[in-house]
């Protein structure tokens, strides 16, 4: 046995020991998960919608896949394939680690999100149950607690200017709130498609029908995501939020321009308002001249 064979053999046994300990670890982890009571009732239906139940289900799926992955790695032929691909491993491992951390952080974020809306959930391909309470709550708080200060009557010489500034602040707040809700809506299909993919992968793993090519997973995901977007974009909920956002944007732009005009008044700069009035006169005059010249030409040709 030469030195390289020795090294390879050593690595293989080291790797086998490591994969075994990892498999054991995931197995023990699965056994250790606490039996937390459901937060939203004991019936089967409420269990399904319970975020803790959903989180546990997701955990079980990931655990199953992980266990299987690591136990499969100890197979001699897989080990050989693994060793064969060692050339590109450093780069690959860095990427994988990066992605794993991203995934882990995302998972943490999702758990935190779920915890803040206990009892609420979203179903695949349905957008009539979107959790928009957070936006409505914020809007209500704003309207009850803050907006009144901006709507309070202003006094004195500068009252009109102050009112315009207050209106701008008010419209900006409303626009930001509408925009946040709009952006959130675009995030929902991503969340839903991840959920569907998780279930699909679980099914495929059970059937031993996992595609080997990453592109197949991507195609599956993009198609699921597209389906979710198509459902969302056709929904009345989306149209309503889009219209609210457009309306809020228009109101904000108007308020901003009014404040700008105030500032520009003292400067030798024409405002859009000034120019629009001129453009309109110019447009009407030009139209009239064209009509008259056509009429003259017609009369000339008739003579």
């Amino acid at each position: 046995m030469d030195q390289s064979q020795k090294t390879e053999g050593g690595m293989e046994s080291l790797f086998a020991a490591w994969t075994k300990s990892v498999t054991d670890f995931w197995g023990n982890m699965a056994k250790m998960q606490p039996d937390v009571p459901s937060s939203s009732g004991t019936s089967e239906e409420s269990r399904k919608t319970d975020p803790l139940h959903k989180a546990r289900k997701g955990w079980e799926t990931s655990n199953k896949v992980m266990q299987s992955l690591f136990s499969s790695l100890t197979e001699p032929e897989n080990m050989a394939a693994m060793m064969k691909g060692m050339d590109s491993m450093p780069e690959f491992v860095v990427k994988m680690t990066e992605q794993s951390w991203d995934g882990y952080l995302e998972l943490q974020k999702q758990w935190a999100d779920h915890a803040t809306r206990i009892g609420k959930h979203t179903e695949a391909y349905r957008f009539d149950d979107i959790d928009q309470n957070i936006f409505r709550t914020w809007k209500e708080i704003y309207e009850k607690e803050f907006q009144k200060f901006l709507h309070a009557p202003q006094l004195g010489l500068t009252r009109f200017h102050q009112e315009r500034v207050n209106r701008l602040m008010d419209k900006y707040s409303i626009f930001r709130s509408a925009l946040n809700e709009f952006i959130y809506m675009f995030y929902i299909p991503i969340e839903k498609s991840v959920g569907v993919m998780q279930e699909k992968i679980d099914q495929m793993a059970d059937q031993g029908d996992m595609p080997a090519n990453f592109k197949d997973y991507y195609n599956m995901w993009i198609r699921t995501l597209e389906g979710h977007y198509m459902t969302l974009l056709k929904s009345p909920e989306y149209t309503q939020v889009m219209d609210q956002t457009i309306d809020a944007l228009v109101q904000y732009r108007k308020a901003k321009e009014e404040v700008l005009y105030d500032f520009l008044q003292d400067l030798p700069i024409p405002t859009n308002q000034d120019m629009d009035e001129l453009y309109k006169d110019f447009y009407l005059l030009k139209k009239q001249v064209r009509e008259l010249s056509k009429k003259v030409n017609r009369e000339k040709s008739e003579k």
């Binding site: 992955l69 499969s72 690959f92 679980d202 793993a205 059937q207 080997a212």
Partner: peptide, 17 residues
């Protein structure tokens, strides 16, 4: 908990490629 079957050798091969 049933053990899922994953063709790890193929996945690794494809990833390397």
């Amino acid at each position: 908990m049933s053990q899922p079957q994953i063709a790890v050798d193929l996945i690794l091969k494809k990833l390397t490629e």
